[in-house]
Structures are given as structure tokens and as C-alpha cells.
């Protein structure tokens, strides 16, 4: 069955990197299309508020 994971194995990777920038740099150096997200804790780190925001989105 052609699942999105099986497709990944056979297609160019297009990555979103959340967190450590060195992983995005490493992907870039390998010629991979990558988008670096300079992630920050959602809702200033308040988990309850972040849960609430997730539900609203």
C-alpha cells in the first residue's frame, strides 16, 4: 500500500526542522530542502494555555 511513509522513502525529502539549528544546517549541507523553525515554547511555556489555544485553532 502506498502510504505517506512509503512515499517518503522514494521521494526527495522536504523537511521542517523544529529546534536545534545544527540539524537544519546538516540537511542543507546534504542538499535537502529544509525550513528552519526557530521554535519557542507555545503560550510562553504555559501548558494549559497552550492546550486551550490548540483546541481553538
Amino acid at each position: 500500500m502506498l502510504t505517506p511513509f512509503v512515499e517518503l522513502l522514494d521521494s526527495p525529502i522536504v523537511a521542517i526542522n523544529l529546534g536545534l539549528k545544527m540539524f537544519a544546517e546538516s540537511l542543507e549541507s546534504q542538499g535537502v530542502e529544509v525550513c528552519q523553525v526557530d521554535w519557542v515554547p507555545p503560550a510562553g511555556g504555559d501548558e494549559e494555555l497552550a492546550d486551550l489555544l490548540d483546541k481553538l485553532m
Partner: peptide, 19 residues
């Protein structure tokens, strides 16, 4: 700053690398 921002920039993404 968020996954949503990343998806807006790369709507054809097929992998999230999360650290």
C-alpha cells in the same frame, strides 16, 4: 516560530525533524 509557520513556508513538506 512554530510548526504552522513552517508549514506555511513549505506546504509540500513530508518530514518534521523535532528536537
Amino acid at each position: 516560530r512554530s510548526l504552522e509557520d513552517g508549514l506555511a513556508s513549505k506546504p509540500n513538506a513530508n518530514l518534521a525533524v523535532i528536537s
